[in-house]
Design a protein around this nucleic acid. Structure first.
Lengths: 211, 211
DNA sequence: GTCTATAGAAGGATAGAC
DNA sequence: GTCTATCCTTCTATAGAC
């Protein structure tokens, strides 16, 4: 029993967790250091002791969130499995991940658009050039069969990730409009249904679209 | 010449325009009354004279933005043209609209998720139940041919709008990752290319997907 | 490392003159 | 209607005791 209680963790971790929750919920400008301190069960002064400023605390949190979001996306595409398997695995894994982190997409997208200083981290996390080449060269034959040229990759990649990310980013718009999937339980079922819907949709389109 | 100069408009209009720009750029919590006053060429006191509080000014602005965004979406689907034409017209009109208002999607989605008090307006602007029934009954035959049941409508509708909205909502993520479409000129060309890409993608998928 | 107390600045809102 | 001056609250950040 030499370790501290893992249920609450050490102070720095508790601050980090609290900050993650508050920033994700309120955004950078909406977040309050007082609320973070309260949730971490400490006082404001201690926040500044561990992370000198709000900005620094935010950057630390944001980097970790970016990693959480993108490592999942990119790691799958580096595996040695058929293209169709990759898409299916991506949709499955990513949608399950987002069901556990539903507010992450809108938070990341919004802060990226508002907080330019936070952008730097992304290129270190995702090497897009490498990723695109990896996908395109590993599945050159299949993609050519679909009539996908290298210059079409951005259209295809944005389309695929939009299937999982967009409904979460637009969660509240959807909630307000569609009574069928108002509550979270129904929405999660809708998203699980969407795994197959998206996979069928994508591959039917690829096989038969105009070229 | 009894009217005031339309170039700058009256004070209330100038405030409204300035507020729209600042809120759209910074979000509710990030926006500053001082900045709005500066852009409108007046002082803070006058803001409060016309719109009592920041909250009220924001609500007024937000309602108008919601309308701008959704009237375009919904009006097309009420027209008396074939289903395929509707999708094409929607993609064309909406993407052109978003090229002129690129920051609107992330702003609306973020505020809807953060500012619950602002949600009320949406149901008055978009009557989803009516819209879904309209689409489904007007094109029952065609949709049945595609194997789209009434319960599939949410999947289909979210998919269609994601083609236009998502790339704008994720604009900065895309900018940071994809050097091919880093600058706005290239991105706009990419989005115009996307009109046909999306249309082909959607109808190939509908015609051939598993049912 | 952790706390209390408070400095110092910024922001929303109002009073009152013109 | 419009302005200047100012109030009051909130927020980030720090000083200093323990």
């Amino acid at each position: 029993m030499s370790k501290s209680d893992p249920a609450d963790g050490n102070t720095q971790e508790r601050i980090f967790e609290a900050a993650s929750a508050v920033f994700e919920e309120k955004g950078y400008t909406g977040a309050r250091m007082q609320e973070i301190a309260d949730r971490a069960g400490i006082n404001k002064a201690l926040l500044h002791y561990y992370f000198r400023t709000k900005e620094q605390l935010f950057k630390a949190v944001f980097q970790v969130m970016l990693k959480k979001m993108f490592q999942k996306i990119t790691s799958i595409f580096a595996e040695e499995i058929p293209f169709k398997e990759k898409i299916k695995r991506f949709l499955d894994d990513h949608i399950e991940f987002l069901i556990k982190n539903p507010k992450l997409p809108i938070f990341l997208l919004n802060e990226l658009s508002q907080n330019p200083s936070v952008s730097e981290g992304l290129k270190e996390i995702v090497n897009y050039d490498e990723l695109r080449e990896l996908i395109y060269s590993k599945h050159a034959k299949e993609l050519k069969g679909y009539g996908i040229k290298k210059s079409d990759m951005p259209q295809l990649m944005v389309t695929v990730v939009s299937f999982s990310i967009f409904p979460f980013a637009a969660r509240d718009m959807i909630r307000l409009m569609m009574p069928e999937i108002e509550d979270n339980k129904k929405f999660n079922a809708y998203m699980r249904e969407r795994k197959d819907f998206a996979s069928d949709f994508i591959f039917s389109a690829l096989k038969h679209r105009k070229k």
